[in-house]
Design a protein around this nucleic acid. Sequence first.
DNA 1: TCAACGCTGTACCGGTCGGTACAGTCAGTT
DNA 2: AACTGACTGTACCGACCGGTACAGCGTTGA
Lengths: 187, 187
Amino acid sequence: MPRTIHERADTLPALGELFREHGYEGTSLALISAKTGLGKGSLYHFFPGGKEEMAAAVLAHIDEWFERQVFKPLREGEDARAAIHAMFRTVDEYFRSGRRVCLVGAFALGGVRGRYAERINQYFSVWIEELASALRRAGTPRGRARASAEDAIAMIQGALVAARALDDAALFRRALKRAEARLTAQA
Amino acid sequence: MPRTIHERADTLPALGELFREHGYEGTSLALISAKTGLGKGSLYHFFPGGKEEMAAAVLAHIDEWFERQVFKPLREGEDARAAIHAMFRTVDEYFRSGRRVCLVGAFALGGVRGRYAERINQYFSVWIEELASALRRAGTPRGRARASAEDAIAMIQGALVAARALDDAALFRRALKRAEARLTAQA
DNA sequence: TCAACGCTGTACCGGTCGGTACAGTCAGTT
DNA sequence: AACTGACTGTACCGACCGGTACAGCGTTGA
C-alpha cells in the first residue's frame, strides 16, 4: 500500500476549474501550485508530462464523467424521452446554468485546439451520436435525428457563450428549455 | 502631415487573426512583431497601452465592422426578412463557415472576459436586440421575437464551437440554415 | 531495524514574457 | 539648411514562465 497523502485524481477538479477560468496558457504552474496546495515536486511526481499532461488528464476526467452521467444514460435508458430530459437537467447542473464554462468547447476555440484535437473531436461526436440515437428510439425520423442532435449540442455550447458574455444565467436556462422543446416536439 | 509608413489601423486585421488563433495569453509580443513586421518600438508607438490596448482596439474594430455590416442593415433594411437573410449570408462569410473563430465569443469564454466584459456584453446584446427588432418588423409576435433572436445568436456561436471541435465546416452551414429556417418559419 | 518507496519542499535552470528607454532615421515644414 | 515629429530598431529590464534536480521526509513491508 502506498501511503497516499494526496492522489493524482484529487487534483483534477481543481485543475479543471483553473483551466476553465484562465484557459490553458493563462494557467501557470504557480497558480496550480497555489490552488492545489501542492509544490512543483508533487505536481511533477503526479504529472511527469507537466502542464500538458495535467490538461490531458482533466479532459480524460471530464470525458469519463460525461460518459457515466450523460452518454451512458442516453444509450441505455429504456425510456428514451426520459433519458433526453434527464440529459438537459444534468447539463444545466453541470454547467451551473451557464456560470461554468465547457472546457472542451473552450479548448476547441482556443490555441490548444490542435494539441487535444482528437479528444475534443471525440467528446462532441460521441455526444451528438448518442443523442441522435436516443432521438431515433424516441420516434424522431431517422433523417432528422442527426441534424436535431447537432442542433441541440450546438445550442448548449452557444448558450454557454452567450450566457457568459451577457452574464445571464436565465438566458442559459431559457435556451436549454427551447432546445429541449424543439427535440421533443418532433419526436 | 505625418509621413505615415504604417498606420495603426493597418495592424488590426493581423492582430485579430493572432488573437483568434492563439487567444489573448497565447499571443506574445514576439508573435505580434513577427506577424505585423513591426518592432516593439513601433508597436508601442501605436499602442502605448501594450497588448491590452491592442486587444481592445481589435474588439473595437470588430464592433465597427459588425455595426456597419450586420447591425445597421438589420436596423435600416426596408425588407426585414431580406435583411435577416442577408445577415446569415454575411455571418457565414465572416466566420468562413466555421473555420474562423468569433473573437468576442472566445474572449467571453476565456480568462480575459473580465477585462473586456463591457464590450463583450455590448456586442451580444446589440446583436440580439437588432435581430429581435427586425424579427418583429418581419411579423414575429412580440413575445417570441426576443427569444428567437437569442436562439439564433446562441446557435451561431454554438455552431462555431462545434464546427471547430469537429473540424467540419459543413456542420456550421447546416446549423446556420436550420437557424434561419426556424426564424423565417414563424415570421 | 532498515531498506524501499511514495511523496514533498526548495533551489535552481535557461528562456521568454510584457514593457521601457532611447538614439537614429527620414519626410515634410519653415 | 535647420528643425520637427512620426516612426523604427535595438538593447535592456525585472518578473515570471515551465521544467529539472535532488535531498529529505514519513510509512510501509521485510
